[in-house]
Amino acid sequence: MTKLPRTDRPRPRVRASVMLSALRATKNLASECGQCAPLDPVSLNIDPYEWVSLFDYLTYLEEAARVLDVTHLGLELGSRFDVGDLGPLGVLFISSETIFDGFLQLQLFLQAWQEDTEVALDTDTDLYSWSYRIRTPSLRHLRRQDALLTLSVVTTWLRLRLGRGWSPAEVHFEQTAPADLLPFQRFFRAPLYFSRPTNGVFVTREEGNRRVGDRVQPYLPFMRRHLRDLIEVPVRDRDIAEAVKAEVARRLGLQPVTQRAIAQALGLSVRTLQRRLSGEGVGLRSIVDEVRMSVLHEALDDGARAGALARRLGYSDAASSCRAVRRWTGQPPSALIKSCEGGGVAE
């Protein structure tokens, strides 16, 4: 059995506004059912912009589902979220001129509200898809209710734009199919697919391009600038290597991971980025390899095949991915995949 070196990554966080919205929605649902919600993990007076532990947030959702005995709790909570619960990000989505543009805003700026989260927008087929999942391998067992809540929120907000009777073309879930499908069928009113690599909402091309906003509001550029500023905060609050690592993890497999792209995303010049990384004794390549090693663990845990593994690791072809994996582990991806199928990769 192959042993792969583990890498330390920053503990991911989420804005307190999301936690507070989940607490309020859970309390309201519990009250309607004559039950008591779990204890609050944070003060209800916390600043909505404060960061809180993503682990604590996910744990609360899973514990609430257990205490209230509602296996589809995320669906119930998501339908109760208001646009303002995601601050300027929610307003950007609901104010976008088209559904495609709304999805694009979520892809570009979600990291300002929740860290270590993979978001992708695919427009290469007849269906537009917006997919979502938390990347942190150690949180894998806590992602179920959060995924349901997120898909519920996005679907609810789309119905605000497209009409209450609207339904997605398809909905995909990471989780296995539940014993009781009825709550899912009643809420989404769409074809449901389980045990997929990620969670996603699909809309038709016509719906994605349909103009649903009267005009682009003049305040939207200011909100985008505000969100960019929030994304840049880690560069000032944390060491540069940590900020670069978070940006690489966000881009890997989705956007270019070059010095110029990373520097621009962090609001630095290429020379300043190089100088600050050198001052901490690291380089961009070593950080990219570290993130790829972490993603490799997650992909193997998910049962990814060789082709999908290359994409997840941000390589354009399987040969490049194979060489890199062999350099890290001494074995090709095929051997690691076989090892996992035979009993998993050793910690």
Rank of each mutant, 00 (worst) to 15 (best):
R66M: 13
D214C: 03
S269G: 15
L89G: 06
P10D: 04
P178K: 08
F173N: 06
S79K: 04
R15S: 12
V233A: 13
Q274W: 07
A324E: 10
T156E: 03
A37S: 08
T2D: 11
P178A: 07
V216N: 12
A308E: 09
T156A: 03
S21L: 01
L68S: 10
M293L: 11
E242F: 08
F55A: 14
P234E: 15
P10E: 10
N28E: 06
D126P: 08
R9T: 15
S316G: 09
G200S: 13
S294Q: 05
R143H: 12
L20N: 00
Q264G: 12
V83K: 00
T59E: 15
L75G: 00
L58H: 03
R186Q: 08
I287R: 04
R9V: 13
L268S: 02
R205G: 14
Y60L: 14
L54P: 02
S167K: 14
R326T: 07
V244C: 06
S167E: 01
T123F: 14
L151I: 06
A306K: 15
V14P: 06
L73R: 02
Y128N: 10
P256G: 13
T329P: 05
N209W: 05
E32I: 11
S316Q: 05
D82N: 08
F188E: 07
E247N: 13
A308I: 08
Q145L: 04
A120N: 07
R225C: 10
R311T: 01
W51Y: 15
E170D: 02
S339P: 03
F194T: 14
L108V: 14
L127N: 07
L139E: 01
I134L: 02
L61E: 00
G314W: 04
P333F: 08
G74A: 02
D302K: 11
V345L: 08
R9G: 02
C33K: 13
V291R: 09
S334A: 13
A120K: 13
T329L: 11
C340R: 14
R15Y: 02
A241G: 15
R215M: 02
M19N: 01
R236D: 15
W113F: 14
S152K: 02
L266G: 05
T136E: 03
T136F: 05
E290G: 05
E347I: 07
I262A: 00
R215T: 06
D289P: 08
L266F: 06
E280K: 11
M19E: 10
L162D: 11
L158S: 08
R161M: 05
G87R: 10
R211N: 07
D146S: 00
L77C: 13
V244A: 04
G102L: 02
R186F: 00
Y219S: 08
I337W: 03
L192Q: 07
V14F: 03
W113D: 05
R189K: 06
W51V: 12
G279K: 04
Y49A: 11
